[in-house]
Simulated scan of single mutants.
Amino acid sequence: MQKNIQVCLTPALISLYDLSNSIVVVIDIFRATSSICYGIENGAEAIIPVATVDECRNYGRGCLLAAERDGKVVEGFDFGNSPFSYTAEKVAGKTIVLTTTNGTHAINESKKTAYQVIIGSFLNLDAVCDYLKAAQKDVVLLCAGWKNKFNLEDTLFAGAVVHQLKGEDYFLDDSSTAAEDLYLLAKDDLKAYTGKTSHSERLKNLGIEKDIEFCLNVNTTQSIPVLKGDKLVRLG
């Protein structure tokens, strides 16, 4: 049976998609989903995505609290969404409550109706693609974007997934074709291509170029974070 693969270029469009039979891959390359993948790989027990800073602040004791807005750690929180805050030394065995400008919004929007929500990044690209091939479900690649607007880096990752899956009897929508074309332009030097992005400029202005480089590492983790109830945990 033919399956569909679709790229939703921003959470503002997610209501246009039927997610009831779809695995939704949430993508926020700079930096939320990269950090989530790294944290789960490094032994975090769970990461709980929440919508607001207040909800994160009031979640309760016994959790690490992480909040980011406009690329910066919100004052008074343990950390934000830099991947370097999600090392094994900091997160192994811990539950983290996380709110970010874009990524957690995309997660919360997709979970309302999706068959399943998983988290994708360049760090776990092959693991995500292998899982999707085996699952035999429709796929929606949800780009978190920037404040409900299109962004380039999330679309590039969506294109990387499309490139691996398109030979597996999927029907591609036009945004999938466009995303793959962008990825094929960029794939030989992701760092240079994503240097064009507005969000990389924001992060450079904050002096965190190392985060950008880290988030462009390909296949350095094997874990797939999956949403179970309100918690992201390791699949499998």
Rank of each mutant, 00 (worst) to 15 (best):
T101Y: 11
S121V: 05
N58Y: 11
K111E: 13
E55G: 07
R69H: 09
G71C: 10
E55L: 11
K137C: 12
A51C: 15
D28P: 01
V50F: 02
I48W: 05
K112Q: 15
Y86A: 11
K90F: 06
N42R: 06
I40V: 13
E55M: 09
L132G: 03
E75A: 15
T87F: 08
A114I: 02
G62L: 11
F77M: 06
L123A: 09
I48N: 07
A51W: 12
A92K: 15
Y115P: 03
V128A: 01
C143K: 03
E75Q: 14
L142E: 00
L64I: 15
L64V: 08
V97L: 09
V117D: 01
W146P: 00
A135E: 12
K133M: 12
K72A: 14
Y59A: 15
L64T: 03
K147H: 07
A88N: 07
E89F: 04
K147A: 13
Q136P: 09
Y115W: 10
V50K: 03
G80L: 02
A144F: 01
K111W: 07
F122K: 00
V140Q: 04
N102V: 03
F150I: 07
K111R: 15
F84S: 03
N108H: 12
Q136W: 10
K112L: 15
F30Q: 01
V74F: 02
K94G: 05
L141T: 02
G39F: 00
T104K: 02
E68V: 04
K112R: 14
N124L: 07
W146K: 12
K94L: 05
G145S: 09
T33E: 06
D130W: 00
T52N: 13
V73A: 04
T99A: 14
Q136E: 15
C63K: 14
V117I: 11
T101P: 03
V73E: 12
F77L: 14
N58F: 10
F77R: 08
D70H: 13
N42E: 08
R61C: 15
T52H: 12
I27R: 00
Q116H: 11
K133L: 13
L123H: 00
I36N: 01
D54T: 14
S34T: 10
D126Y: 09
C129T: 11
S35T: 11
I27D: 00
R69S: 14
T52P: 05
L65R: 11
V50E: 01
A127D: 01
A44P: 03
I29Q: 00
A44R: 01
K111M: 13
E68T: 08
V128C: 08
Y38A: 09
A66G: 04
C129V: 06
V53K: 10
G71T: 07
S35W: 06
E55W: 06
E55I: 10
D138P: 04
L132V: 07
S85K: 03
T87D: 11
C56I: 01
N108R: 14
C56V: 08
I47L: 14
V50I: 14
S82M: 06
I36F: 11
T95W: 08
C143S: 08
N58W: 14
C37D: 01
D54C: 10
D130L: 08
F30C: 07
S85E: 10
C37T: 09
D78V: 05
G93F: 04
G120R: 03
L142K: 00
T104Q: 05
N81D: 06
H105G: 06
Y38D: 03
N58E: 15
F122L: 06
L132E: 05
V73L: 13
E89K: 10
H105Y: 14
T100R: 01
V73Y: 05
